[in-house]
Design a protein around this nucleic acid. Structure first.
Lengths: 318, 318
DNA sequence: TAGAGTGTCATACAAATGTTTCAGAACGAT
DNA sequence: ATCGTTCTGAAACATTTGTATGACACTCTA
């Protein structure tokens, strides 16, 4: 390409993008045809002669979403800016998740919606758009805490059902049984067999993950007295999903507690068309990386800093 | 503007400019109407949320930049093509200045950034890349107009600080005092002494210059009632920098107004490592030539026609 | 509660842009 | 000179974009 050609391209690009002239005007001004101006402009763009930036912090979030989809098995991702106050993370994630889920419900016919538990999900239902899906069932996917915490799974499921005008089914059990044997006994009941079967038919599951820090509600209020965080950590756990503790690769750890959990097995998530995980906060980076590695979800809603940390972990462990 | 609105704008801008979707596709993808997508896109552009650069330069402009650096004391120069519409000059200069300053901030550790005032600087901050320089201070270097013009110095400084993630200090005073005596009284205050001292420690100053024509905002809205343009012209002034009026050699003219200005003295600019002047338009050729003669800045951002005119003046009087 | 003001949407339309097709010009090779 | 290749312009067209209009819902105020 000659230098004159190059200069012409620059001139056209300048007039178009900087001065905002139309291609016709540019053609007139430079004494060329509109077609030529159009072609030059196309070449200029293709050559990277012009570059466009989005000047906003939020743009980085969008970039991260694209990277997540490109580099992991995720089908979709929502990344929001990390709030300055750590305790605001569930709030902003809740909003984002509600927006996402509301649209999903509008656009897809969802008959079964499984739901978990936690502060982020609580915030999510608070921001759900009201709707009317009378033939949809909201199914709670795990038992509640035994302590009378306001965050119990029943309330979350029923409130969500109320908001979106759907039916509601509860999973009426504690999270952990006293022993592996009693867990088996409980799950052998017809009621639970039916429950589990129904849960496997959910079209959508909305879950969050827990970590092993003091911030985790499950750790603080949900663990049986005879189980310590240290023993979980010792078994290689980095966090839990639906009460089952996972190692950094996303596999359930060998720990007695995992034999006592009264909830669907993690593998069941593979039967569900759309698994949405909404969780954030740097303390959850490891467990989030784990579920990404194990491809346990299709959609992730997370905050920017945590996504970066989790992606760092993913890449680091190749 | 709410954060959600912002989020939506960023998303629309991203999909449009980065991924090249059509507005209809974007509307579908985000669940909004095409009209709304179109409007959001317009707002994003108007707000400077997206900025477009032409990466290659016009040979003529590059040549002029070299000549400027060779023939004057300038350390660096940026010359952009003169737009057909005179009122586009601040816009194109703003883009170019933003690009230059953004890069400068990335490449140098800047702790203090002094900033002036005017349409060009306003356009500049609109196109600044978002960044995070929490230990940088943006210091406004001159007081505001007394009329409630939208271009006030506070807004410019704070908006710039917001964009680049820096702190902000204001220079809270009118530009001109009622008399030389009251100016001295005001400047004797501790507040102002401290302000001036801090301004002298700026690593970078971003300023523009004003001329004596009707286009000048300072002339139109900033002059005290008892001062006429004619008297300034009579005193030999060709324009101002930081409210101080200069003669063609770049020396402050002997005029009462120069004793009433509440701003750092022009000589203070010599203490600042990098003084960037961004101004253009043929009416400013004389004052630009003046500051070049007096070596008052290190970097000039200007348009081609004005640079030629200013260099003509320099050589003529050389 | 009425009404002004605001914002949104659907529709329609005008302007700008991107693309295709075809015909001719320029150019080089034979 | 002739042929084929490549580039360009003219024209026509389809798509995209920007804008105007009227209808409607919502909010705020009186």
């Amino acid at each position: 390409m000659t230098s004159e050609e190059e200069q012409l391209r620059v001139r056209v690009a300048w007039l178009y993008f900087m001065e905002g002239l139309t291609q016709s005007d540019i053609a007139d001004r430079l004494g060329i045809t509109r077609l030529r101006a159009n072609r030059l402009l196309g070449e200029a763009r293709a050559d990277g002669l012009v570059s466009i930036q989005v000047n906003s912090r939020l743009a980085d979030c969008v970039t991260l979403e694209r990277q997540l989809v490109a580099e992991t098995a995720l089908r979709d991702a929502v990344v929001v800016p990390t709030p300055a106050e750590a305790d605001q993370v569930p709030v902003v994630l809740g909003r984002a998740t509600a927006e996402y889920l509301s649209r999903h419900l509008d656009e897809h016919r969802v008959r079964g919606l499984g739901i978990g538990w936690g502060t982020t999900l609580r915030e999510t239902i608070r921001h759900m758009r009201a709707g009317s899906f009378p033939d949809m069932h909201v199914n709670s996917m795990m038992g509640g805490l035994t302590h009378g915490l306001e965050l119990n799974t029943f309330e979350i499921a029923s409130e969500l059902a109320r908001r979106v005008g759907a039916q509601c089914n509860y999973f009426a059990a504690p999270i952990y049984a006293g022993s592996a044997r009693s867990r088996d006994t409980i799950l052998a009941q017809d009621v639970f067999r039916d429950s589990l079967k129904r849960l496997a038919t959910n079209d959508v599951a909305l879950l969050s993950v827990g970590d092993l820090s003091r911030r985790s509600l499950l750790i603080r209020y949900g663990l049986p007295r005879d189980v310590t965080v240290e023993s979980l950590r010792g078994a290689g756990a980095v966090g839990d999903i639906m009460g089952t503790f996972l190692d950094p690769r996303g596999q359930p750890v060998r720990h007695a507690l995992n034999q006592r959990v009264i909830a669907p097995p993690v593998a069941m998530l593979r039967d569900i068309g759309t698994v949405i995980v909404a969780s954030g906060g740097l303390n959850k980076a490891a467990i989030i990386a784990a579920i990404l590695r194990a491809k346990l979800c299709h959609v992730l809603v997370c905050d920017e800093a945590t996504v970066r940390a989790a992606m760092g972990l993913l890449r680091g462990a190749g």
